[in-house]
Amino acid sequence: MTTTPATLPKRDQSARLENWSRAFYRFRQSWLSVVGLAIVAALVFIALFAPFIVPHPEHVAGGTNTAARFIRPGAEYWFGTNALGQDVFSLVLVGSQVSLFSGLAVVFIAILVGGVIGAIAGYFGGWIDEILMRITDLLLTIPSLILAMAVAAALGTGVTNMIIAIAITWWPAYARLVRGEVIGKKEEQFITAAKALGAGWPRILGRHILPNIMSPIIVKASLDMGFAVLTVASLGFVGIGVKAPTPEWGTLLSVARADMPDYWWTAVFPGCAIFLAVLAFNLLGDGLRDVMDPKARR
């Protein structure tokens, strides 16, 4: 080192910023994805702060008010009350916690397990690939609802068991996606360049391949969040998963079944919540796909 500059240049943020503004420009091209993003942001906000903002936190904890059963939606109870006299609005708002949290957990576990297995299978190929992918194929044949029921029967019901059960059937999809992407990327010249520089496989996989295949994974994760919310609700509906009194959209719907059609509000509002969440994540996912892979646009 002959010369030592007095000051080293600071990391220039403008390039990164420009990338983001470029990405947001493409995202904005479709107003539907902006709507999706807005709803998702609202859902996350509600899930985080629901216990503090709901009008009747005592109902959420399991408190009942038999004097106020089946009140129609109005000024006092926005979404009406149910058979136990609980405020449906409070229940739906807090119900978002379980739905979003379990959805997030399922997708996170699926990405982690599927990503590691897919990356190893794709990068090394050969018999490692054969063994890992055959296991993956095997798991893909099990329907997640049935497995969740079996797990619930074996280990008992509960959020953790439900999450594990869904994740077991979901990671193979990520393993396949990641494997395909890794195989595609590992033939690229900058990977050969890294090899020629003497980089070992952990560096090539972690530093070069994974950052370059994040886009499809993020898009899939966003679309899957919608399905995860739906699956969690389905399990709640059939009675596996969250235990009362914790409010959960699927469970709320299931309980409200008996009160239909006279007391429609008890079922319609949790149903709307599920619909809105699933729709929002799908719109967001489509929007992200446009941003990250402009070629896939119609």
């Binding site: 690229e188 010249q189 900058f190 050969t192 360049a193 890294a194 020629a196 520089l197 003497g198 530093r207 070069h208 950052p211 370059n212």
Partner: peptide
């Protein structure tokens, strides 16, 4: 490999786009 290096043909493909 530290002593023997290579420059590739395609300057677009041989640099990691995320670095």
């Amino acid at each position: 490999r530290a002593r023997l290096q290579i420059v590739f043909q395609d300057p677009y493909a041989s640099l990691d786009p995320r670095m």
